[in-house]
Nucleic acid binder design. Sequence first.
DNA 1: GAGTGGTCTAGACCACCAC
DNA 2: TGGTGGTCTAGACCACTCA
Lengths: 263, 263
Amino acid sequence: MPLPSGSSAAEAPDAAGPSGPSGAPGPSFSPLYQQIKGLLTRSLQGGEWKPGEAIPSEMELAARFRVSQGTVRKAVDELATGNLLVRRQGKGTYVATHAEASTQYRFLHLVADDPGAARLQRRLLDCRRLRASAEVARALGLRSGEAVIQVRRLLLQDAQPVVLDDIYLPGTLFKGLSVERMDSYKGPMYRLFEAEFGVRMIRAEERLRAVAAEALAAQLLATAPGVPLLSVERLSFTYDDKPVELRRGLYRTEHHHYRNELN
Amino acid sequence: MPLPSGSSAAEAPDAAGPSGPSGAPGPSFSPLYQQIKGLLTRSLQGGEWKPGEAIPSEMELAARFRVSQGTVRKAVDELATGNLLVRRQGKGTYVATHAEASTQYRFLHLVADDPGAARLQRRLLDCRRLRASAEVARALGLRSGEAVIQVRRLLLQDAQPVVLDDIYLPGTLFKGLSVERMDSYKGPMYRLFEAEFGVRMIRAEERLRAVAAEALAAQLLATAPGVPLLSVERLSFTYDDKPVELRRGLYRTEHHHYRNELN
DNA sequence: GAGTGGTCTAGACCACCAC
DNA sequence: TGGTGGTCTAGACCACTCA
């Protein structure tokens, strides 16, 4: 309880330690910096600072929350580690965005065997509204039959199809998404999502399998039925661990591989 | 340069900042805690503290290195983040090991679709000494033709083969490794490596592909030729980013998937 | 109760960036 | 030159573990 008693401002967090003056049997102990982290996350979620913008300096935040700079620092450190914030020495701390080149394909682990290969091209095949199947609804936390937007697209390298993606998005969050809007947009899809719909992908879980190409997938990927494909099912989450995108990808791995780092 | 001049003990690190008293045009600046981190890593590498043992307390390390506890703390924090050390509040800081249940299969991302599935069983098929092929030599940083140990094994669930692994190890580091020694060993293979051969796997890189089962692999995995398999090529590193294991795995993914978390 | 890691503070100085 | 994040310190107190 390092806060000077009587100085509790509106935004000052309350440590509520188990040995607090109230003597309440607090079931859990939450360090100050964790509470600061929570407050910062709420501000990010609420849009107080938008992707790409700078958040207040550590000194300002320390004053706002009535804690020392070191405490704010630890909170910001963890948010930066979680890729929610980006620190730039001498300039400030910024809200992370999917726009930066370094994070261009943060979630796409597929790389060409040939390191000097060309960049991937995008080709939208389809974008339609439909009702969520039981499976899609379950993954996205919707009710079966709710509106869903499905996007089908290819990624190509040197005009050769490499990835076929089926993307499912909750209809309520992505009203007005259309082929035209996506086609005219330069840059990563996740950047469009955060800029146009205010939906920011924070983390994702993937499940990988080896499968045989079905007839349609083989045709779209310009390969033969039965060819082994890498199936990548991705569930992406925004703040609060809320799932907001289901993506089923089929990757051709004759000249590409899925790269993963283990620590 | 916070060290009091004239107090340079044998183990005291030298910050050597660009604006040091010598005025040397130091090309790079290395914070104190980074240097401490390096010293700690060297001690780990040299075996001063063995896997599972406790390292000296933060206060002791601070005294040894003539820095404050906070500086040691930051160094230890990063090593703990990198899974080299494990902190246990109230007890001490320990050298990480592959023995703990929580890290039992730290590097194996394959999980059963059915969450209530049985544990994986291990079956060693083969262990032989041979000369490194050009490809294996290149991956492990050896000369072509150098001695290599190859281990082939299966992982089974409910008597059904799920994983076929071919493991390649530098012969000089793993003298005396035999089927008997591995078969009689309870616990993870990486635990045996660190306990019996002093080789600790720190991190790894994997390349995943979808491939069709060849005749031999199909037979060993009790499946049909042509079935899609997940090919996982793993290169594991010890300290100094030195590669010490090449592993080629073939995973059946009818009832299992490779799980990955994206941040 | 002694010892460990965990949190928090206040203040100093450094490296980097922009104006 | 001033502001930002980055490093380092010294000291206080807390939470946890174990004898």
